[in-house]
Design a protein around this nucleic acid. Structure first.
Lengths: 339, 339
DNA sequence: GTGAAAGCGCTAACAT
DNA sequence: ATGTTAGCGCTTTCAC
């Protein structure tokens, strides 16, 4: 049967131990100025009643919940999973617990207007700080610190961690160019994201540096999803003069390329070279060789940055005003064929 | 620079729009009994000030936050990731948002005493219900409903979803026996968990039904981790009369078996047959053929069960008192060798 | 060393 | 249609 036990409050504890709420509160917060006898008595009652303080009530009165938040639209997504792994590792080493907030779906999340909502939801009430993944807003009203991973805006007012998308894309392209490819297709990411813009620029610049002109027909508008990448790949390969290699702006897109290649019976890399971007191990079952998990690494770094921000003396106004730009090299890899 | 913008409260909105807090509260909760003029004015101010209601304060006064909780010790773990995928899918289809609570580490989580803490933390304050994964306690004091996945206890007072661990283990064993194996090693799971006990029993009973006696030296004490499974496998294979097949109690353990087999140059399944249990796609990069993702499926089912419990009329006392035993068949698979 | 009382931001009667 | 009031469970002065 479903339990009907009502939650135990500090009032119950106080009454049962025959003291006032304030005294109970004192031992709960280890203020130390309570007689040892009373302290023990109260502890016993707490144990016996199974009392646990009400998060909501507590956070209304005091800062410092030893809780950080991670805000993400969709935690089933491989990218999100990598982020969580990184954050998880960092908080496992800390005294903090983690609250991951998600709507389960990007569509329920929507744009910048909603971001503020989720930030205040957590940061102005129950968490000591939040980590934002690819936020679109440049500024947030928040009582507690914010750190972001891969912000979609250029000059955010909060510290951020981001990958060298440009450099990574250049590397990917140089790799393909080094293999002798001259017609390289590109499946772009979501056009509104900085990461996508930078990867696109890397594609452009690498071609130019190699003395090649950019052929717009080789650029397909993707959105970081496998589904769209499938469509993109089909149209790229249906060109009169199709590319001999495809650079996908992220792993999900690369998977789409592989799927189509499979369908069409193309051998990789013999018939088509494919390069992804991100190194998500979830993509591993699709014949990939993972170089490293840099997304998780970014998340790990972000979390530690946030924790130090939370614990950092409030006095040090300078530091909180600094824009932290921690840079981790994005890497790329070549997708090889397997059985 | 880090923003210093203080959080906007309902008071500020009321003052700015020249009305009382209750009126603002009314439009916030769409009570409808507010003049359209006032309504618009207030909406404008809310927009302009960027007001968002304080989660903590709101949840102190009213039930129904449209928020469910998922409590797990470690969200980096493949099992946990599968659970989240399932829950995520369910809430994406719903109007609810999700809050995943984690300590990042099983060691910080500890035993049953802490479980209650996390349950009340969420369920007695901010969530409308929680999903518990493999809880060790049989009962919880909680204001909101609880649904559990794979509880470690036999007769929990809350609804639970669990796999047919016994049947699944039998299937796995029958498969190996069907291949002609007579010496089958078993790497057990964490002995305190029901799932583990049932899988072990399946191992025993399958052998007996096949008219074989149980050789205790073929049973290695694992704990659902790859690391321990590696040690177990080494000792099993070092036996005078080693097994020709190994049934690992979960995928993580199966991965450990594969690692050792690799090290020792053993061909699978020619030299050694290996069967895992769980079907976590994360194990896929290790030459596995995934049958289905039943953990995610369980989590999906659990979430929907919780949601209906939350939305179910309070009147229907009968239903909340029912023990929901939803059963999903655990499946097994044969691990084949690859390159 | 301990209790009484004031509020944190909000919602829900109860008034008007 | 709107304002007033009383708490929700907790922490924190301020008394004693």
């Amino acid at each position: 049967m479903q339990q009907k036990k009502k939650a135990v409050t500090i009032q119950n504890v106080a009454k049962t131990s025959g003291v006032s709420v304030s005294t109970v509160s004192r031992v709960l917060n280890a203020k130390g100025d309570v007689a040892l006898d009373t302290q023990n008595k109260i502890q016993d009652v707490i144990e016996q009643l199974g009392y646990t303080s009400n998060l909501a009530a507590r956070s209304m009165r005091s800062r410092k919940m030893n809780l950080i938040g991670l805000i993400m639209p969709d935690i089933g997504h491989p990218f999100a999973i990598e982020v969580m792994k990184g954050v998880n590792r960092a908080i496992a080493e800390s005294e903090y617990d983690l609250l991951v907030y998600t709507t389960g779906d990007v569509r329920k999340f929507e744009t910048a207007s909603h971001e503020q909502k989720y930030v205040s939801l957590l940061n102005n009430s129950i968490t000591d700080g939040v980590i934002l993944v690819a936020p679109a807003a440049a500024e947030f009203a928040s009582d507690a610190p914010i750190v972001s991973i891969d912000p979609a805006v250029v000059n955010p007012s909060y510290p951020s961690i981001h990958a060298t998308n440009y450099q990574g894309a250049m590397d990917a392209m140089r790799y393909l160019l080094g293999l002798g490819h001259r017609r390289i297709g590109f499946i772009s990411g979501r056009p509104e994201l900085e990461s996508s813009i930078r990867r696109m620029k890397g594609y452009h610049d690498a071609l130019e540096q190699a003395g090649l002109s950019v052929d717009d027909s080789l650029i397909a508008a993707g959105d970081y999803t496998t589904e769209t990448a499938v469509i993109c790949t089909r149209s790229l390969l249906a060109l009169e003069n199709p590319p001999t290699a495809i650079f996908a702006a992220n792993d999900q897109s690369a998977i789409g390329v592989l799927q189509v290649a499979n369908e069409m019976g193309l051998k990789i890399p013999d018939d088509l070279s494919v390069v992804g971007f991100d190194n998500i191990p979830e993509a591993a079952h699709l014949n990939l060789t993972t170089v490293d998990q840099f997304i998780a690494e970014m998340a790990y770094t972000a979390t530690n940055k946030l924790l130090s921000l939370i614990n950092g003396d409030e006095l040090d106004e300078q530091i909180t005003k600094m824009q932290t730009q921690l840079v981790i090299r994005g890497s790329c890899r070549h997708l090889v064929n397997a059985a």
